[in-house]
């Protein structure tokens, strides 16, 4: 029986693995199963290709986490330049790469309050490849200007800045960040998405080719690695997610990630 084609979520995971190519140490925050799967796939691919070893630190995992100095160690490690890539979400993300994890409305008594900024205001400055990842891609998330800057996309001249936004991956497509502009350029649209839909769902202006490329599906080897080894590894930290994923790929029709 031929393998069913890649689902929308598998395309996200494979895209993350591509964005992580060449990194040595990737950290993944808590409650982030898709970034964790992408990092595990990147590790498996590097191993298969005989490339240098890729370390992963998954917060919330026992097996895939080697920190022993408490919750400060991730930040110390990032400050020392020992972490190459990390993922940030965002209740709001704007065209200048600013991220808002605090809420909607005027601070502090906001209309909507989210949990808080976590480590973003530090990690965005210290980790070179921060991948902004949010499945929901609507004009309420991708805004012209965020209501609160948890972490700024770029900094003024003279400010110590070793890291920042590298890419923005959503349920609709992949953008790369240009810090000199500063702004996003649409790299590819996921299967089934159009440029018109993308403009409609995005509150900020972005650069793009006249006919943007389609996000490439994985080859057979990569897909097999993802559905085998990676899912097994993922099951330790995210048992429910891994189980649901298995059901989805076993002959079930691929589902759209966003509507």
């Amino acid at each position: 029986m031929k393998n069913p084609p890649a689902t929308a979520r598998e395309i996200l995971i494979v895209t993350i693995a591509r964005l992580l190519h060449g990194t040595r140490h990737v950290a993944v925050g808590a409650a982030s199963p898709i970034p964790a799967a992408g990092a595990m796939l990147a590790r498996a691919l590097a191993e298969t290709a005989g490339e240098p070893r890729l370390r992963i630190s998954i917060l919330g995992s026992v097996k895939h986490n080697f920190f022993t100095n408490g919750s400060t160690e991730l930040f110390d490690c990032a400050g020392q330049g020992r972490i190459d890539a990390f993922f940030l979400g965002g209740g709001q993300i704007d065209g200048a790469g600013n991220v808002n994890l605090i809420g909607v409305g005027a601070y502090p008594e906001m209309k909507v309050r989210w949990p808080g900024s976590f480590g973003s205001a530090y990690l965005y400055f210290t980790i070179p490849r921060v991948i902004l990842f949010r499945e929901e891609h609507t004009s309420r998330v991708m805004v012209e200007k965020v209501d609160f800057i948890s972490a700024p996309g770029t900094s003024a001249e003279g400010v110590y800045r070793k890291g920042g936004p590298y890419a923005l991956l959503t349920g609709r497509g992949l953008f790369m960040f240009d810090k000199d502009k500063p702004g996003f350029r649409l790299e590819s649209l996921h299967p089934g998405q159009t440029l018109e839909q993308m403009h409609e769902a995005t509150g900020f202006a972005f650069d793009h080719a006249e006919k943007p490329a389609e996000t490439a599906p994985p080859d057979e080897t990569t897909l097999a690695l993802l559905r085998g080894r990676v899912l097994e590894e993922l099951g330790e930290t995210y048992p429910d997610f891994a189980a649901g994923f298995r059901t989805e790929t076993l002959g079930v029709e691929p589902k759209e990630v966003t509507t």
């Binding site: 400050g79 605090i102 601070y107 502090p108 900024s117 205001a121 530090y122 990690l123 965005y124 400055f125 210290t126 609160f148 800057i149 948890s150 972490a151 700024p152 900094s155 003024a156 400010v159 110590y160």
Partner: peptide, 13 residues
């Protein structure tokens, strides 16, 4: 002293 934070609304508040 700590790196980061500059230009954020966390620091501004």
């Amino acid at each position: 002293p700590i790196r980061g934070l500059l230009g954020s609304d966390i620091q501004a508040n």
